[in-house]
């Protein structure tokens, strides 16, 4: 895999994304999603909420990287908390 210039952190990142997608697929098979309205201004399915969470996580990280010198664990913790909030009450 030299041509893709892999590193351990990027491999772990993509394994993480893959696991999230796989979990969502299994969850959907076991209990199909029902569109619902939470604190987000739109009606969302479970897939919508995970997409919103992941996209938000990317921008939370970019915001912290661009504006602060804090370690990545800070935006990562915020992004995980945000993911749970959106999945539960979004």
């Amino acid at each position: 895999m030299e041509w893709m210039a892999w590193t351990t952190p990027s491999a772990l990142f993509f394994v993480g994304i893959g696991c999230i997608i796989l979990t969502m697929v299994c969850w959907e098979i076991v209990s199909p999603t029902v569109a619902s309205k939470g604190f987000l201004p739109i009606i969302t399915t479970r897939g919508d909420r995970i997409f919103i969470s992941l996209l938000s996580a990317a921008f939370i990280h970019l915001g912290f990287i661009g504006l602060t010198m804090l370690p990545l664990s800070v935006p990562l913790t915020i992004a995980i908390i945000w993911l749970f909030i959106v999945m539960k009450w979004g």
């Binding site: 210039a5 990027s10 970019l62 661009g66």
Partner: peptide, 30 residues
């Protein structure tokens, strides 16, 4: 796209590569 993500966290000189973390992102954003 995955390859680009891999490139974005490294400093690449031909076959030599160094892991730089999010340094390029910081540089680009500023």
């Amino acid at each position: 796209l995955m390859t680009v993500v891999n490139y974005s966290i490294q400093d690449i000189f031909g076959a030599t590569r160094y892991f730089v973390g999010v340094e390029w992102y910081r540089e680009i954003l500023n």
